[in-house]
Write a protein that binds this DNA or RNA. Structure first.
Length: 304
DNA sequence: AAGACGAAAGTGGTTGA
DNA sequence: TCAACAACTTTCGTCTT
């Protein structure tokens, strides 16, 4: 069965695995957006790719603290029925194992559990989770966790992984999911990326559009318009130094206005995690520099 | 009454001496 | 290390629809 775009009935759909979105190539509609909405578990979505994901055996993965290769000496429950001698041996072994299990391993075990929890809360794709785990592992090996809480480093690593994979989540979202203060997440994020020499492209406001638009239930047309506006403003050098979410939300607000799908500044501000004031500021700049006034005026006349 | 607008003061982070 | 600075937020009063 071939899916069709509900907007334009095109069958030309593009499945972006990285972002977990299905996008119509004709009109830009996000047909399915598995990251945030509509309660669909991404694993169940597409039987074909689900099949590909299924594996036999234990893959070597960064999301397990010892990469899935270790063994553990059991706990007290395993002692039942053992000879006294065996018991002694058991205790010796366990003590020994305790000594060799370094701080790194114990830390990783806890941290990766936390990482998985946060990642699944945010419905992040597996690739991002793996990346975050890799980053975290590196951070631990370089001793960057010392003096910082494990949770905050996990959050920082996840944020960095999101950025690298162009699956932007705001600091607020990371903060909410991890229970770490926003500024702390930002701080550790900057710290670990600097220390590990991870280069991160400045996030593109356009990356936020599909997600925000989808939350606001805006049409594909509006989305395309918003992206267009962002491109225009980038050319007009309105974007440098500004928060990407602010730009994205203002563009979306204007685009909605132009297409007669008005949302209040409050609504847009909420999904984008910025304030109305910021939207207003960006919005004003957009009108000034991009001569969108004409389009707005046309609209107003139409309405009258 | 709700939304849009804008001024003023505050916050956290960056930069440059 | 500190002060200046830009971006953004919070708060609040006023205007518009």
């Amino acid at each position: 069965m071939v899916k069709k775009c509900p907007e334009c009935s095109s069958e030309n759909l593009f499945y972006n695995k990285e972002k977990g979105e299905v996008i119509c190539k004709e009109c830009g509609l996000v047909v399915e957006e598995k990251m945030i909405d509509f309660g669909q578990d991404w694993r169940e979505f597409d039987p074909e790719s689900a099949e590909k994901r299924r594996r036999t055996g234990a893959p070597i993965t960064y999301t397990q603290y010892d990469q899935g290769l270790g063994t553990e000496v059991g706990r007290k429950a395993d002692l039942y029925g053992l000879e006294k001698r065996s018991k002694n041996k058991f205790f010796r072994l366990r003590k020994w194992q305790y000594r060799i299990s370094t701080a790194i391993e114990r830390n990783l075990k806890l941290a990766l559990a936390e990482l998985k929890r946060v990642s699944s809360y945010l419905k992040l794709p597996k690739s991002v989770e793996e990346e975050a785990a890799r980053i975290y592992t590196l951070a631990v090996q370089r001793g960057l966790v010392r003096g910082r809480s494990m949770e905050s480093v996990v959050a920082g690593a996840l944020y960095a992984a999101c950025r690298r994979h162009e699956v932007p989540r705001t600091l607020e979202e990371l903060s909410e999911a991890s229970g770490i203060e926003k500024k702390e997440v930002g701080r550790t994020y900057r710290f670990i990326t600097r220390e590990l020499n991870i280069t991160i492209l400045p996030s593109n406001p356009g990356d936020y559009i599909p997600r925000f638009a989808s939350s606001l239930r805006l049409s594909a047309k509006t989305q395309s318009k918003a992206v267009e506006i962002i491109e225009m403003s980038q050319k007009a050098e309105l974007t440098s130094g500004r928060g990407p979410t602010g730009i994205a939300s203002a563009a979306l607000y204007v685009a909605a206005l132009i297409n007669g799908e008005k949302r209040t500044q409050r609504e847009v501000a909420d999904v984008a995690g910025v304030t109305e004031v910021t939207i207003r500021n960006r919005y004003k700049e957009l009108l000034d520099k991009l001569s969108l006034e004409k389009e707005i005026k046309k609209l107003k006349k139409k309405i009258k």
